[in-house]
């Protein structure tokens, strides 16, 4: 799919010379995976803009949390308060949704939140690559949560975990039908979990670029620049909300694994 996108985008760029009246650049050009050194084909070991930005995200996260929690003062400094804010927010959310026994799994959920949060916000920098717009990145996160939660459910409850699909409250003749629907919805979870994040980020960044492509046209240029500012503000909101939504759904799935009987 990536290669196809590259070819299609390339054609449109070629057509879109100023006199042709088309777009100057394709809004999805920003998601092309390019090697940083040279421009050969992308191998599994080549350093691309994706891996560079993944590394920046991880380093930024590490820097904030290592520096912020190094000197654990009773009265926190500026950096430490930021770290405590993150920690307290996620800790409270995990406790609210999954209960006390879910706190054992708090570190994993915290890691997910901080990674997605930083990836989303660093993607808003101009010229950056939005890591979470890649379905490959979010699919690893989403399917990781799905497999972890499923294994955890079977480890903790054995075959009783299957009671998640068997509604005891429903009338008997409806239960098999509900069970089928529940099984389908259970297996769609990782797909929707990962596509939601990637789709939101991709769509938001594409919309910004669509308006940016209209900016050189003199008549509508003030309008389009205003629209970029507005959409950018919306994206700042969406970046935080999507990170929050991802971990809140992780907590909901974890709660299903901890207490499968409704």
């Amino acid at each position: 799919m990536e290669q196809d996108a590259e070819i299609v985008a390339g054609e449109i760029v070629a057509e879109g010379a100023p006199d042709a009246g088309g777009l100057v650049f394709h809004p999805l050009d920003q998601f092309i995976v390019k090697p940083v050194f040279g421009d050969g084909p992308v191998h599994w070991y080549s350093v691309t803009n994706v891996t560079v930005w993944l590394a920046i995200v991880v380093l930024a996260t590490l820097a904030l949390f290592v520096l912020g929690s190094r000197s654990r003062k009773v009265v926190p400094g500026r950096l430490q308060s930021v770290v405590e804010l993150f920690y307290g927010f996620i800790h409270k959310m995990v406790e609210d949704i999954t209960g006390k026994e879910g706190l054992k799994y708090f570190p994993y959920i915290m890691t997910l939140f901080v990674f997605i949060f930083f990836a989303n916000y660093l993607a808003l920098l101009p010229m950056s690559y939005s890591v979470t717009s890649m379905i490959a990145v979010t699919a690893v996160l989403g399917f990781g949560v799905f497999i972890w939660v499923t294994v955890l459910g079977f480890v903790l409850h054995g075959t009783k975990f299957l009671g998640l699909f068997w509604m005891k409250d429903a009338p008997l003749f409806l239960r098999p039908i509900i069970a089928i629907i529940e099984v389908i919805s259970y297996f769609v979870r990782p797909v929707s979990h990962s596509v939601r994040l990637a789709g939101n980020i991709t769509a938001g960044h594409a919309v910004i670029k669509v308006f940016a492509a209209f900016a050189p046209v003199l008549i509508i240029s003030p309008l389009s620049i205003l629209a970029i500012v507005a959409i950018y503000g919306l994206e700042v909101l969406v970046a935080g909300i999507q990170a929050y939504v991802f971990v809140i759904l992780t907590c909901v799935y974890l709660k299903d694994a901890l207490h499968p009987a409704h």
Binding site: S192, V245, I248, L249
Partner: peptide
């Protein structure tokens, strides 16, 4: 609220 928004948006 956010869970509901997320499901509707997906």
């Amino acid at each position: 609220l956010f869970i509901g928004l997320a499901f509707a948006e997906a």
